[in-house]
Structures are given as structure tokens and as C-alpha cells.
Amino acid sequence: MKNKNIILCGVGGQGTILASKLMAAAAMKRGIEVKTAETIGMAQRGGSVFSHVRLGKDLYSPMIAPGKADIIIGFEPAEAVRHLPFLKDGGTVVVSSCPILPVSALIGTSSYPLEEVLQYLKEKTENLILIDSEAAAKNLGSAKVLNMLLLGAAVRTGELGFEVEDIRTAMREKVPAKFHDLNEKALMYTEEKGIS
């Protein structure tokens, strides 16, 4: 397998860390070397967070250099744009279209021009998969499985280097049994809806 550099980004509390753990577990099962790095600490309180996931051979640092990410999985559109300099030419972006307004934007000390942000993503990304996660959450009956929803879409791009079955197996091992059905539905959501 070719080496893969994957970036997950979003807002503290959105579930990026579990998503990177599932990918790492899936990679290990396949005997693929894996290194990851992520934001831990103060930023987890609603700040910008990221996980870098590196898969393959001869990896040294767990961090990904700008212009080297094969795929960015954005849990939030502005955060995806913030990490866009990491994307390689021709790279793929899977992103939730649902914004999370920071307190700074709500009280007017910073602005969040959503339309401009989405437009920018469309212009700058060759392979963009925009997911209406609000509609998906209504459909699935939960907003807490955004990570599985996005992983499902990402795995189908072929850019992660493994199959949906690998993620499903990893999820079943890491997530409490009572949440398996919901997570599986989220994982398969984009396939069933034909979103790509």
C-alpha cells in the first residue's frame, strides 16, 4: 500500500479522537504501520482541534507537513479551510457543511461568513465531498455519530487505504455494544443515500 497521510479536524468535543483511533486500529489489523498525533489539553474545550494519522512505511514523525495530506476529514467547514494548506495537490476533502459558531462570532468579536467558507472549499478542492450532517443527524436520530458518518464517506473515496469492513470491525471493538447499531447506520449512511 502507498503511504497515506490523513488529517481530521474540527472543534473540541466533536469526536475526532475516536475517529483517528478507529483508523489506527483498522490499520494495525492489516499490519500497516501507523503513527498519529492529536490536540490534547486546553483546546479540547471547544477550540480548534486536529488529528494527524500517518499510515505506511518509513514514517518518522507523527505529524504531516503542509501540502502532504492525501485527505482531510473536516468535522466543521471553517476548520477544514483552516487545514487546507496541508492538502496535497489533487487531494480529497470530506467535510460536514454544518458550521459551529464560536462564541467569538456570536458576540461579534469575530465573523463567520459561511457562504464564503463553503465557496472557498468548492473552488480550492478538486475532490470535495460535502455532507449535510444536519440532515443526516435528523435521519439517524443523533448528532453524536458525526465521526462515523464522515468516516463512512471518507473510506468510500479509497483514500484511507482500507475498507468499510475494517472500520466496522474496529468500531465494534472500541465502542460499547449498545451504540453499535447507531454507529453502523451512520457508517453506511452516505452509501445508502448515494452521496459522493
Partner: peptide
């Protein structure tokens, strides 16, 4: 140096939950 995105992005410092 990679170019920073030329679209205004909201600042997102950590906040009280």
C-alpha cells in the same frame, strides 16, 4: 511557505463548556 486561506475564518479559542 504554504499560502494561508484567503477567506476570513472565525477565531476559535477554547471556552468554558
Amino acid at each position: 511557505m504554504p499560502a494561508a486561506p484567503d477567506v476570513p475564518l472565525p477565531v476559535r479559542p477554547p471556552v468554558l463548556c
